[in-house]
């Protein structure tokens, strides 16, 4: 019978992880993805489960001078209800509120949504747009990684074998920041995104764009930024932004595919339209 490890501290979790057999363990937190995979795939012999759901450190939300530190084990329902998140990072409250529905949000964790590394992860675009940093704990201590460097390929992350995602740091946004979030799914609730988009745009006193970041889901093998779009916008003025150029940049930044939920063509077109809308309607 499989062994179930349920550490109470991060240190204990890391120590256990270091000792686990490489291919025969499964890390679990909220379980909303892991349990589905276990149900659908051929029975895989998981010798050891490492359950992170009983570690209080992972459940903490702390507001600091720089921003907010969200423990990887914080559930989406905690996030969507959190007054500070609602006030300063409304896109994150919004994305948490459209990840599955209530029974999922009560279990699923922000860290789990990132580590599961689905290209459609609902909270990924927002964290990309906000410029989040990840706090990763490993046997040699803690390191910080910009979130945009976390997804290396389809369902591949920058976590090393003996590392765990500990917290997500989201910075305060400077004055003049505007944001835009939209999820396009087949139905209103309980949907997997066909396109997810979050944008953060920093304007100067005129309509000059100081900085712009776009996070997208379901348009490439991983959640992704739009570097060419950002590069085009930064230093530009809203008055001079050209729709055709935006489309061109979007299409070179993303690699949408046809799948069971939508088409590459739809994704490209809608992503382009929503980026354009984000630039003009972000607030």
């Amino acid at each position: 019978m499989a062994e179930w490890l349920r550490p109470r501290h991060m240190n204990e979790a890391l120590r256990l992880l270091a000792e686990l057999p490489a291919d025969h363990h499964q890390i679990i937190s909220g379980g909303t993805d892991v349990m589905v995979a276990q149900q659908l795939r051929a029975p895989r012999d998981i010798a050891v489960w490492l359950d992170l759901s009983a570690i209080p450190e992972l459940k903490m939300v702390e507001v600091t001078a720089e921003g907010i530190r969200i423990g990887a084990g914080v559930t989406l329902s905690v996030l969507r209800r959190h007054p500070e998140v609602q006030k300063h990072w409304p896109m994150l409250a919004a994305s948490a509120a459209v990840t599955g529905a209530a029974p999922i949000q009560n279990r699923a964790t922000l860290g789990g949504n990132l580590c599961n590394a689905s290209p459609a992860a609902d909270n990924a675009p927002v964290l990309l747009a906000y410029g989040a940093r990840l706090e990763i704990a490993g046997p040699n201590g803690t390191r910080f990684l910009p979130y945009d460097q976390f997804h290396l390929g389809y369902r591949q992350t920058a976590l090393a074998a003996h590392e765990l995602l500990q917290a997500i740091h989201v910075p305060y946004l400077p004055g003049g920041s505007r944001a835009y979030y939209r999820k396009v799914g087949t139905r209103a609730a309980q949907a997997i995104a066909k396109v997810g988009i979050a944008a953060w745009i920093h304007f100067d006193a005129g309509q000059g764009i100081i900085a712009a970041r776009f996070g997208l889901a379901s348009v490439a093998a991983t959640p992704c930024l739009l570097p060419r779009v950002s590069h085009y916008l930064e230093g530009n003025n809203l008055k001079h932004v050209c729709e055709f150029t935006i489309r061109e940049k979007v299409s070179s930044d993303i690699k949408p595919v046809d799948d069971i939920r939508s088409t590459a063509e739809y994704r490209l077109e809608v992503a382009s339209r929503l980026v354009w809308e984000a630039i003009h309607d972000a607030h």
Binding site: A101, A189, R261
Partner: peptide, 11 residues
């Protein structure tokens, strides 16, 4: 049921 979609209350 993740990809055959029927209406939910929200729809």
């Amino acid at each position: 049921l993740t990809n055959y979609i029927i209406p939910t209350t929200a729809d």
